[in-house]
């Protein structure tokens, strides 16, 4: 029987009561964590509150909108969505979403292809004036957009592209966005060349190497490029405002303004409802691609 008591003390020893100092340290850690997380939650809520309010308010009636400060609707209604979707024009909001899509799709695809080609050239090949050319591409990054608005407008007017989607996506589809070129170049620089050399030894042409070897390795960067381009285009207001004049061709960003213009008494609930819808695609795409997106913008950490 004496043996049994000899076996167990190990567990007993571990369960000795904590000392005063240990208790104090634990309490300190707990208090510190509470303060930290409390503060973070508070600031986080503060940041996200307008969005929460927006979503809440889109389910309110127009009358309730400014009477109650709470974001929670008293009598939830989807009337805002129904009326907002119909719009005061002959077109539904669906039409405007489609218009946005017709700009975004060619722009995103064009950007991905053209920027990859240009970046591949800069990152992997030697050619005359390469340094100067790359410097000029980067220099356009520093150029304020406003400076080129008027000459660009005149140019597109002369080509006859006004009131079409072309001015909105063609420049980007020709690697006009230096930022993306730069991003891919940086990403490519971090990828060792061995794989491309192996492909050349395997008999691949330059284009085959690009398509079969480089592009798959570039995927995270390309996803970020597409995502950025998608969100920026979706949210772009100034571009369509300048180049698109007929309501029939309005993208979502312009169409939102439409409801403000044409109604005497602003139907805020409709505007907010449509704003929520306009936000939805960007948010959805972002959360779906978040993993790759983060991989893509932390370009330096790529392993071969």
């Amino acid at each position: 029987m004496a043996m049994l008591s000899d076996i167990s003390p190990k567990g007993r020893g571990d369960r000795r009561p904590p000392t005063q100092i240990e208790l104090k340290l634990r309490r300190k850690a707990r208090v510190s964590a509470t303060i930290r997380y409390g503060l973070l939650t508070l600031i986080g809520l503060l940041m996200v509150y307008p969005l929460i309010w927006l979503i809440g308010a889109s389910f309110k009636t127009n009358a309730e909108m400014f009477t109650s400060p709470s974001f929670w609707p008293n009598e939830p209604t989807v009337q805002g969505y129904i009326d907002g979707w119909k719009t005061s024009t002959p077109y539904t909001f669906g039409k405007f979403f489609l218009n946005s899509l017709w700009i975004i799709i060619p722009k995103v695809i064009g950007t991905a292809i053209s920027c990859t080609l240009v970046a591949y050239g800069f990152a992997r090949f030697e050619f005359p004036f390469k340094k100067f050319l790359f410097a000029s591409v980067i220099a356009t990054l520093l150029l304020p957009n406003v400076v080129t608005r008027i000459p660009q407008y005149l140019l597109f007017r002369d080509i006859g592209w006004l009131d079409s989607f072309l001015p909105l996506w063609v420049p980007s589809a020709m690697a006009g966005d230096a930022f993306f070129v730069f991003m891919i170049v940086q990403f490519l620089r971090a990828i060792p060349r061995d794989m491309e050399e192996a492909a050349r030894v395997d008999g691949a042409t330059t284009l085959q190497t690009l398509v079969y070897i480089v592009v798959p390795m570039l995927t995270p960067a390309l996803i970020s490029v597409c995502l950025f381009q998608f969100m920026w285009t979706m949210n772009d207001f100034l571009g369509p405002l300048i180049y698109v004049s007929s309501v029939e061709k309005y993208p979502v960003s312009l169409a939102l303004k439409l409801s403000i213009d044409t109604t005497e008494a602003f139907a805020w609930n409709q505007i907010l409802a449509m704003s929520v819808l306009a936000l939805a695609p960007s948010l959805t795409v972002f959360f779906l691609a978040q993993k790759y997106f983060i991989e893509g913008i932390s370009a330096g950490g790529v392993k071969g």
Binding site: E197, A198, V201, D202, A204, Y212, P216, M217, T219, G304
Partner: peptide, 29 residues
């Protein structure tokens, strides 16, 4: 060009194509 010289090369860092399975790595050429 390298592909037309009738050579094959083994690299120090292996240089396997990271997105292809071994089977495709072998058969790519």
């Amino acid at each position: 060009v390298p592909g037309k010289r009738g050579i094959a090369m083994v690299f120090q860092n292996y240089a396997l194509y990271p997105h292809m399975k071994v089977r495709r790595n072998l058969s790519f050429g």
